[in-house]
Design a protein around this nucleic acid. Structure first.
Length: 406
DNA sequence: GGGTAATTTCCTGTTT
DNA sequence: AAAACAGGAAATTACC
């Protein structure tokens, strides 16, 4: 790969600190369209940023629209594609990190996604190249460049310019080249030989289109990749909100929380106080404070999160069998007895979430599912003989198979 | 439509 | 103190 010296010095940071008070997320329809790229990153001012509330996703994605027409028409898009990166919450940042990794065939075993776990979009905007590299020595530079591109080149338009009833629903499709690398990795002006070598090495084929369906390869098994694109969001749901409005129920994505109709109301509302105790055993009270608009609880699996024959223990087994992921992501503690340990627990959870079309997946939830699998004998208790770490360790149980076989 | 399996989500309390 | 563990409860979807 050709490595060229930067022709232009990168800005120290993406942008100066923004004055959030001046950033209006719900501008009226007569806002004029303005390209973010018109104001160079690093010298941007608030007036330049403040009008950009919604990515203009209408142009230059015909190929992408065709390729992903079905998933996007029937299903939904990721909430981070609907906001300026500055407004991403930490879940959206993490979702973007892993989306980019999948799109660009990065080696997730070496990606330190968990280091971005608490980073919000606003924080990301303020991070220097060095900050990115500190978060992820291998891919930090790459993500820095990518994020800078998104920030500089993303185009925004006010929400009203997108008609939710329009038959051209594909206009909501996100600009793939803004979130994956546009042409080739070589386009990044890499001045670090190690980084460039690393990027070269990570273009192994993990993603393929099979029968028109994108598939990702984990441990030799192909998993549907179109599922990864699913977000539980209504077609008409174009919510894009400020971070402050997201506190009603942390686990729900903003896009799941707000429809067009309710968005305006919600942002005016006082943030709902959390009920002190929700451990009521009554039949209806358990979901108070966290109900969707139809009054139903947010609990339980959403559409598209079905198992489809791919169970959690199988997914874990397949990860362990993948030399690219084992031992970086998770590793055997004692293969003979089936004891393994999560090395990057949140990264595994993110991968599981991607597989299940569930961007809200966390290690906490994954581990709860693991404990259910344990009670169902797919996993078993780890021997408490002091031989194994007390945390993040699990063991395959009598109902699991195929983990020992080569 | 009912029952069941396999989660997902949320929670409180405990242990490391 | 924070992270991880434990497990109850309720909810959902897929499948039989």
């Amino acid at each position: 790969m050709a490595v060229s010296c930067p022709t232009q010095a990168l800005p120290e940071t993406f942008a100066p600190e923004f004055d959030m008070d001046n950033i209006s997320l719900y501008e009226p329809c007569d806002i004029k369209l303005e390209k973010v790229s018109d104001c160079a990153m690093g010298e941007s001012d608030v007036s330049c940023i403040s009008n950009k509330t919604f990515m203009d996703l209408t142009d230059s994605f015909d190929g992408f629209k065709q390729e992903y027409a079905c998933p996007f028409e029937e299903k939904n898009m990721k909430s981070w594609t609907e906001k300026h990166p500055e407004h991403w919450n930490n879940n959206e940042v993490l979702d973007w990190i892993y989306f980019v990794a999948a799109e660009n065939h990065l080696d997730v075993a070496r990606l330190r996604g968990e280091n971005f776990q608490t980073i919000t979009g606003q924080k990301l905007c303020q991070m220097t190249q060095q900050d990115f590299i500190e978060k992820d020595q291998e891919y930090g530079f790459y993500y820095f460049e990518l994020f800078r591109q998104i920030f500089n080149e993303a185009k925004f338009t006010p929400p009203a310019s997108v008609d939710p009833t329009s038959s051209d629903s594909s206009s909501l499709n996100f600009p793939r080249e803004l979130f994956s690398y546009p042409q080739t990795i070589a386009d990044i002006e890499v001045n670090d030989a190690q980084t460039s070598e690393m990027l070269d090495n990570n273009l192994d084929t993990m993603l393929e289109i099979q029968d028109g369906v994108p598939k990702v390869n984990i441990a030799g098994a192909w998993y549907d990749f179109d599922d990864d694109m699913d977000i539980q969001m209504d077609r008409t749901d174009q919510g894009y909100i400020s971070g402050e409005a997201e506190s009603e129920c942390d686990s729900r994505l903003p896009s799941q929380l707000f429809s067009d109709e309710e968005a305006e109301v919600v942002v005016k509302k006082e943030p709902k106080k959390k009920t002190p105790s929700r451990r009521s055993h009554g039949s209806t009270s358990s979901s108070e404070g966290c109900e969707s608009e139809d009054g139903k609880s947010n609990r339980g699996r959403k559409h598209g999160q079905c198992s489809k024959g791919n169970h959690l223990w199988e997914f874990i087994r397949d990860l362990l069998k993948d030399p690219q992921l084992n031992p970086s992501l998770l590793k055997w503690e004692d293969k003979e007895s089936g004891v393994f340990r999560f090395v990057q627990s949140e990264a595994v959870a993110q991968m599981w979430g991607r597989k299940k079309s569930n961007p809200g997946m966390t290690y906490e939830k994954l581990s709860r599912a693991m404990r259910f699998c344990r009670s169902a004998s797919y996993f078993a208790g780890v021997p408490k003989n002091g031989k194994f770490p007390k945390k993040l360790c699990f063991r395959f149980g009598p109902k699991a198979f195929g983990w020992k076989a080569e």
